[in-house]
Every structure is written in structure tokens, then in C-alpha cells.
């Protein structure tokens, strides 16, 4: 464990908590893409299958349990409890156009042609594009609530911090995972224009309003 990965995990944890707070406090899922939340639940499910087979640390296990539980609870809030506030008209990204190619790529490009490894690779590739429905929805609605912007900033920062974690681990531990790094770079790049808007607007007290 290093400081970059720890802050990254905390940023990821914060993002999920911000989202749950937003939904619980406003009793609304307006502006949130259910499609992205489905992809995140799929990412955690396929990545944490080793939850019961390999024990790394208490921290690792607790975080995995929390991430999986929180992602399914988020789906429950979106598609059941606060379903009336779900904006399906603006959440129209065809996620099959993400899942199918990512699934194919995971079969072709992986470290080891074994079920758990291919599922892990699938979850890494899928996570790098899982935010697309959400960013697409923000561009379609033309604006995002401030708390949703904080959610996206924390979520985008987590993988950017993981990039620093991989640089650190390369130099100090000789650890390097090309698949995770490439997917992490793609994932972080997807947030770049949002990061720009967040830093130039939200931090100055304005709302994010994209040219619709």
C-alpha cells in the first residue's frame, strides 16, 4: 500500500458515499445515469469474485464488500425506491455497445486465459468506459447538480491517483500491470474535460452547464 493508492481508494469511497448522500437527502436520482451504475455494479461483481477465495487484508476485504454492497444498493435506489425520479429519457446510452466489445477484448487481450483472469480483465476494461453513459447524460441535460459534479470529480480522481500509485509501484516495487495502466489512462482521459469544467466552474461556485 502507498499514499497514492490509499488516497485513491478514499476518493473512490468518497464518491460512492457522496452519491448515496445525494440520493438519500434529495430523495431523488435526477441527473444520475442508471446505466453507468449498472456498469459499475458489473465491474465490482466481476472483479471481486476472489473475495472468498483469496484473502489479501482486512482493509481489502472490507472495501470490496462495501463497494459491492453500495453499488447494488445504489441500483436499488435508482430502479426501485426513487424510480419515479429516474430520468430515463436522458439516460439513453446503449451500454451493450460497451459491454460486448469490452467482453471480446477481454478474451483477446489478457495476462492469462483463465476464467477469473478474463473476468478481472473484463472488469478493468469495463471500468475505463463505465462513466460514459453518465458523461453522455450530463452533456444531454446540459448541466449537472453541484453534488453530482463533486461525485464525478472524486470518481475521476481515484483512477488518476491510481496512475500515480502504479508509477510509485513500478519504481519502488518493480510492479507493473500494462492492462490496468492502459485502461486507467483511458479512464482518466475521459474525465479531462469534466475536470477542466469542475476546476474552472464548480470551484468558483458556478454550476456546470455544458453547451447543450
Amino acid at each position: 500500500m502507498n499514499i497514492f493508492r490509499l488516497i485513491g481508494d478514499m476518493s473512490h469511497l468518497l464518491a460512492i458515499i457522496i452519491l448515496l448522500i445525494k440520493m438519500w437527502k434529495t430523495r431523488s436520482v435526477a441527473g444520475i445515469s442508471g446505466k453507468s451504475q449498472i456498469l459499475f455494479a458489473l465491474v465490482f461483481t466481476t472483479r471481486y469474485l476472489d473475495l472468498f477465495t483469496s484473502f489479501v487484508s482486512i482493509y481489502n476485504t472490507c472495501m470490496k464488500v462495501f463497494f459491492i454492497t453500495a453499488s447494488y444498493f445504489t441500483l436499488f435506489l435508482m430502479y426501485h425506491k426513487f424510480k419515479a425520479t429516474y430520468d430515463s429519457n436522458h439516460d439513453t446510452f446503449r451500454i451493450e455497445f460497451l459491454v460486448v466489445p469490452v467482453g471480446g477484448l477481454a478474451f483477446l487481450v489478457n495476462h492469462e486465459f483463465a476464467p477469473l483472469e478474463i473476468l478481472w480483465t473484463f472488469s478493468i476494461y469495463l471500468e475505463s468506459v463505465a462513466i460514459l453513459p453518465q458523461l453522455f447524460m450530463v452533456s444531454k441535460t446540459g448541466e449537472a447538480e453541484t453534488i453530482t459534479s463533486h461525485y464525478l470529480f472524486a470518481l475521476g480522481s481515484y483512477r488518476a491517483l491510481y496512475l500515480l500509485n502504479w508509477i510509485y509501484r513500478y519504481y519502488f516495487e518493480g510492479f507493473f500491470d500494462l492492462i490496468a495502466v492502459v485502461a486507467g489512462v483511458v479512464q482518466t482521459i475521459l474525465y479531462c474535460d469534466f475536470f477542466y469544467l469542475y476546476i474552472t466552474k464548480v470551484l468558483k461556485g458556478k454550476k456546470i452547464s455544458l453547451p447543450a
Binding site: 489479501v56 463497494f67 518493480g174 507493473f176
Partner: peptide, 10 residues
């Protein structure tokens, strides 16, 4: 490169 078989990252 040393591909860590034991996935210790989240």
C-alpha cells in the same frame, strides 16, 4: 515486468 498474480489492488 513482474505481473503480480495475487491481485492486491481494489
Amino acid at each position: 515486468f513482474d505481473f503480480l498474480k495475487e491481485k492486491d489492488e481494489l
